[in-house]
Design a protein around this nucleic acid. Structure first.
Lengths: 203, 203, 203, 203
DNA sequence: GATGAATGAGTTTTCATTCAT
DNA sequence: GATGAATGAAAACTCATTCAT
């Protein structure tokens, strides 16, 4: 009777997911502060009450967007960083991978870096903690490589990681999914720059 | 007529400056949309009428913040990029310098990347154009170095510049003026990473 | 069928009672308008559907709280006022008794005087009518005493009853069940004041 | 040019006063919770923004209503209680007077006793403190009379004062300004009841 | 009987901006 | 030049009630 096919699937997609998708898109497009709850629920095809049934506040949507992306990336980093291979191989794989997921979730990434500061204190703290854990796992990979002699020991690992993620976060200002470069390509270039710099190796 | 004589201050009243300083600080602290005009004028010690005498709208403050930082950095880039020395020397100098001014104007930088999207379309376009000119001057320096053989030619210059500025914009998330590292030190590290990467030169 | 046998509970399910108890407590604590239906059903350990099965609307709870207290007090007044003894004895007994039941049902009393005006017109009218009947029965007792010469005839009986019940309704602003005075003691004092005033009898 | 007469009186009455008057009337009529800010400002002939220019929140109106009535009554009590005459004379005068001002400010009184519990904690505390001071001044008058032998010493003064003010607060449930009894008359009756009780003096 | 997702009309509050003085 | 009272449009959020299951 509804638009579902044969199964008893109910609505096409659960409401919370639909709301998050709509919110992510609108936040990325117009900014969190310029997006009203009304616009979100209209985009999701429901009313405000429905949204507040699932999310206690507008900033819960924001938090959830961050949290999901972070959880996804943290899980993948864990797997790749804890895999086999030299530290350099693992760092390279992890770095290319995070660029891949960042490109796939460009809207989330945009929202993340523009609007994290708009979260209420407690949620901001939670996100920061999740972020820090992620950062530290990445940093430990750099340090491993420094101890093994694969990386220069004279650059603080913390600083190097911050530098690299700056580039990652910047992605959304210039990269577009339908542009000439694919995520994989961007990843290889970025990681190349990160690990080898601009100067020719034999110079 | 006012208390300024003939010195560098010029004949302009210091009021617009005071307003911009207050706005910059509050925008960086609480976000543009969470800062009311009332808070700004209170912080600057004036009234709303006075502010609207100098700025047509709240977003004029935002625009002006961007514009001034960009103008400053563009002017310095012009000077350094057009100076003497090899392309690598000039790029290095320009890169260290932009990190220096970014550290000196950390609030402006923060506001820039958090709130640019909140500008009305026309002002946003203007800022983007200024930004693009800046980016292009920087990129041309990279290209010069690629042509001269100082830099690897296999990395798109655009991408490299974006990568580097990602790191620069990220600065405000981890660097603090009273932390252990000075702007100069950060600059050297960043530029080192950018130009030489993480891997030892003889590997 | 349920767990109640043949005892005083009767065949009625305890659910409406549980809801009313929870509502009474919450209304007294936070006010009618500051208490949501959700809070009531949560406190009663049921769901909204269950509540709406027994009560057509939130204000039915309010009405029922009033109605039950009034019915209880009216029944007791009837018994005492229609008993034996002089009018003075019967008024004294009735007055002490109403203070007793008021102290026992302090939450209901609180709700009554704070929130009666929030009832929709028709229910408010019903409560007022019940209240008036109660008042009139009490007043007739005073008038009886005035006719018998036990009470001063120069005070309008209506006014005297209103004066007395003012004191009763005020109870919830200062009396607490675990304070130093018991309901009986308060009753004796109040009735003493009402019937004899503050001035010494031989003055 | 406006509707003022000859003087430069400006608007007929200052806006805050107009708002308070409108709010008092509506709160008394329909209850605080059933009165929207919109209704208040409409009644006062302005817009919401204007109201929030003078009152930080809806409950500020509530607080102000209480506070003004209490200040008025406290000042009058102070004058009468500290005057000349026997304690009985002064208590009588003060009691009649408070009934007078209560009748004159019946709406405020109604609002007071229905809605004090709706104030936020801090304002509620402030009102309670003001109220307690008032109560204590009144009580001290009763105690003075008890020490002088004019009043029965066997009734706790606190309780007597509570009893009396119960009657006062009850006023708004039965007295109307255009009814047969004037404030003075009510006052005399109430005070008569309070001081002499219902029973004939020679009984 | 009972559930709880969803509604929709309502609430208080905020704030950039204007304009009479 | 400067003030600050007032506007008006919009915001986030609440909640009693309904209804398909």
């Amino acid at each position: 009777m509804t638009q579902g096919t044969a199964e008893d699937a109910g609505p096409v997609s659960p409401l919370p997911e639909r709301l998050l998708r709509a919110a992510t898109h609108l936040f990325a497009e117009n900014g969190y502060e310029n997006t009203s709850v009304q616009e979100i629920v209209t985009a999701a095809g429901v009313t405000k009450g429905a949204m507040y049934h699932y999310f206690a506040a507008k900033d819960d949507l924001l938090y959830e967007i961050y949290h999901r992306l972070l959880a996804l990336q943290a899980e993948r980093l864990e797997r790749l960083a804890g895999g086999t291979g030299t530290p350099e191989e693992r760092l390279r794989a992890a770095a290319v991978d995070v660029i891949g997921t960042s490109c796939e979730h460009l809207d989330e990434l945009t929202v993340f870096f523009r609007s994290m500061h708009l979260l209420p204190k407690d949620k901001r703290k939670a996100v920061r903690a999740e972020r820090r854990r992620y950062h530290e796992r990445f940093r430990s990979l750099v340090e491993e490589g420094q101890r093994s002699g694969a990386f220069r020991p004279d650059v603080p690992a913390d600083l190097a990681v911050n530098f690299f993620f700056g580039g990652v976060h910047q992605l959304s200002t210039w990269w577009h999914p339908d542009g000439p470069m694919g995520p994989r390509e961007v990843g290889e270039y970025y990681v190349g720059l990160f690990l080898n710099g601009l100067c020719p190796l034999e110079a």
